[in-house]
Measured scan of single mutants.
Amino acid sequence: TFELKGKVGKVVKIAEDHYLVESEGDKWIAYSDEKLSLGDRVMVVDVDGLKLKVKRIP
Rank of each mutant, 00 (worst) to 15 (best):
residue 41 R to H: 12
residue 52 L to A: 06
residue 14 I to Y: 09
residue 8 V to E: 14
residue 6 G to Q: 01
residue 46 D to Y: 03
residue 31 Y to T: 13
residue 27 K to H: 09
residue 32 S to W: 02
residue 28 W to R: 03
residue 26 D to S: 12
residue 15 A to V: 10
residue 54 V to S: 01
residue 4 L to H: 07
residue 50 L to W: 13
residue 8 V to G: 03
residue 15 A to Q: 09
residue 50 L to Y: 13
residue 45 V to Q: 04
residue 11 V to Y: 00
residue 22 E to F: 13
residue 30 A to R: 00
residue 47 V to H: 04
residue 15 A to I: 08
residue 39 G to N: 13
residue 49 G to S: 06
residue 46 D to H: 03
residue 18 H to I: 10
residue 11 V to T: 05
residue 33 D to V: 07
residue 40 D to Y: 05
residue 25 G to D: 05
residue 50 L to H: 10
residue 12 V to N: 05
residue 32 S to D: 05
residue 17 D to A: 10
residue 47 V to A: 04
residue 34 E to L: 04
residue 3 E to N: 01
residue 10 K to V: 08
residue 52 L to Y: 02
residue 39 G to P: 01
residue 55 K to T: 14
residue 55 K to M: 14
residue 2 F to A: 15
residue 46 D to S: 03
residue 24 E to N: 03
residue 36 L to R: 00
residue 18 H to S: 09
residue 27 K to Y: 08
residue 3 E to C: 13
residue 45 V to D: 10
residue 21 V to N: 01
residue 42 V to P: 00
residue 49 G to R: 05
residue 27 K to W: 07
residue 18 H to Q: 09
residue 56 R to M: 11
residue 38 L to T: 07
residue 33 D to F: 08
residue 53 K to N: 09
residue 7 K to C: 14
residue 48 D to S: 05
residue 10 K to Y: 11
residue 49 G to Y: 11
residue 6 G to V: 01
residue 55 K to Q: 14
residue 20 L to A: 08
residue 48 D to H: 06
residue 9 G to T: 04
residue 20 L to Q: 07
residue 47 V to L: 14
residue 29 I to K: 10
residue 15 A to P: 05
residue 38 L to R: 06
residue 58 P to H: 07
residue 30 A to D: 00
residue 21 V to L: 06
residue 29 I to H: 13
residue 48 D to Q: 09
residue 50 L to C: 13
residue 14 I to V: 11
residue 25 G to S: 04
residue 4 L to A: 14
residue 30 A to L: 01
residue 20 L to R: 06
residue 34 E to R: 05
residue 24 E to L: 04
residue 35 K to P: 07
residue 33 D to A: 10
residue 40 D to Q: 08
residue 39 G to L: 10
residue 24 E to K: 02
residue 50 L to F: 12
residue 8 V to M: 06
residue 6 G to H: 01
residue 11 V to R: 00
residue 34 E to D: 11
residue 23 S to T: 14
residue 10 K to L: 11
residue 2 F to H: 15
residue 15 A to G: 11
residue 8 V to I: 13
residue 38 L to Y: 07
residue 16 E to P: 11
residue 44 V to W: 03
residue 49 G to D: 11
residue 18 H to T: 07
residue 55 K to C: 14
residue 8 V to C: 13
residue 10 K to C: 13
residue 12 V to H: 06
residue 30 A to C: 14
residue 1 T to Q: 15
residue 31 Y to F: 09
residue 48 D to A: 05
residue 44 V to N: 02
residue 31 Y to A: 13
residue 54 V to T: 03
residue 2 F to C: 15
residue 36 L to A: 02
residue 40 D to A: 07
residue 58 P to V: 05
residue 27 K to N: 11
residue 54 V to R: 00
residue 49 G to V: 08
residue 24 E to Y: 03
residue 44 V to H: 01
residue 56 R to S: 08
residue 38 L to G: 05
residue 48 D to R: 04
residue 30 A to E: 00
residue 13 K to L: 11
residue 57 I to E: 14
residue 50 L to E: 08
residue 22 E to C: 07
residue 24 E to I: 03
residue 38 L to M: 08
residue 44 V to P: 01
residue 34 E to A: 06
residue 40 D to F: 04
residue 32 S to P: 03
residue 54 V to W: 03
residue 25 G to Y: 04
residue 8 V to P: 12
residue 49 G to M: 08
residue 43 M to E: 14
residue 45 V to K: 03
residue 22 E to V: 07
residue 47 V to K: 02
residue 50 L to A: 09
residue 44 V to M: 02
residue 25 G to K: 03
residue 50 L to V: 08
residue 13 K to T: 10
residue 23 S to P: 02
